[in-house]
């Protein structure tokens, strides 16, 4: 399977279009006098990274984690707390943020992967809320109100500074492309084959002598670390962290981005995040009460648009 499958499939065309928009926005947006789109798309790309990471476990592993936003929070809070104490070097912040995300994912995964089905959904949710309430109770770091981060991560070199808008934007873009590449390599490796096989029939894979628990746990940890990167980027972009970035509705939204774009497809989470957030932005600009439309929209997508955008567009091809 090649990453660059022909663009004859409308789903792939749509993906390519979204990626081109991401790549060119910093040049096009100022020309049409809409510079704020640079921040909007930077924000969307960060969510897309988180959604790509979630797709690894939900889409390919069949593990419905309802607490994935917690790693956004952990990545963000690691950067924020270090900056608060005067540690601004990216060489310390980033490895720590990724490492702590991985460690938390290891602990949470080890506990929750012992269970299945509904139990798994609720335990991942509860464990994530535990960290959320921990952040709420941390008065030193702003409790509910959150914490302003005065300076972005410092790489200590003159030619690469995240204070520069373009550098920040293209760093996020590069991380997004890298995370899709990583998940492509993972999914098509032996590791990915075991993961997908365990999703479709766990007992069979176990019976030929593969300990699926370890594979699932590894996938859970990789996804946590990847989402931790999204969190540290978010903290850097917004210059602000608060418990809300890991509150449970964020986890629900992440799942929705994955499903909307198309589960277990490589670029589905990217297009899903794009459509989800653009639609939110549009509706929110139209009416203050946009949730009254958005809520039923979510229900309808679940009931009628199986396979998400990727599924819809691919079906269109087969008919045509």
């Amino acid at each position: 399977m090649s990453l660059f499958t022909p663009l004859r499939n409308p789903a792939n065309m749509f993906t390519a279009l979204v990626l081109v928009i991401f790549a060119l926005t910093p040049f096009v947006a100022p020309l049409i006098g809409e510079s704020f789109y640079i921040t909007v798309f930077a924000r969307i790309m960060i969510w897309a990274i988180a959604a790509v990471s979630l797709n690894l476990i939900i889409g390919y592993g069949g593990l419905i984690s309802f607490g994935h936003a917690v790693y956004l929070g952990i990545g963000g809070y690691t950067v924020g707390i270090l900056a608060f104490h005067g540690v601004e070097s990216a060489w310390i912040q980033w490895p720590l943020a990724i490492g702590i995300s991985g460690l938390v994912a290891l602990i949470f995964g080890a506990i929750s992967l012992r269970t299945r089905g509904v139990y798994f959904i609720m335990i991942t949710l509860a464990l994530a809320q535990m960290i959320f309430f921990l952040a709420v109770s941390a008065e030193r770091y702003g409790s509910d109100d959150g914490l302003n981060i005065l300076a972005r991560s410092d790489f200590g070199v003159s030619f690469f500074s995240l204070q520069d808008k373009m550098t920040m934007y293209y760093t996020i873009f590069a991380v997004l492309v890298a995370s899709v590449l990583v998940s492509w390599r993972l999914v098509n490796s032996r590791f990915g084959v075991v993961l997908r096989a365990a999703k479709s029939n766990d007992a069979r894979v176990e019976s030929i002598g593969v300990a699926t628990y370890r594979y699932r746990l590894t996938a859970f940890v990789i996804a946590g670390m990847m989402c931790g990167i999204a969190g540290l980027l978010q903290a850097n972009l917004e210059g602000f962290i608060s418990p809300d970035m890991m509150n449970w509705p964020r986890s629900g939204e992440l799942i929705f981005m994955v499903v909307l774009g198309g589960m277990s497809t490589l670029f589905g989470p990217v297009t899903g995040a794009f459509v989800f957030l653009m639609l939110s932005e549009l509706l929110a600009g139209w009416t203050h009460h946009w949730h009254i439309i958005f809520g039923p929209f979510l229900v309808l997508v679940v009931l009628f648009a199986r396979g998400g955008i990727a599924g819809l567009l691919s079906r269109g091809v087969r008919r045509g």
């Binding site: 629900g252 799942i255 949730h291 039923p296 979510l298």
Partner: peptide, 23 residues
């Protein structure tokens, strides 16, 4: 439906109900 669909659809219902009460 599977649990994933149930989680998402009822998540949508929460948004709807919260906004309906606000209205």
């Amino acid at each position: 439906r599977d649990h994933l669909d149930q989680v998402l659809a009822t998540f949508g219902l929460i948004l709807f109900f919260n906004e309906a009460v606000r209205l």
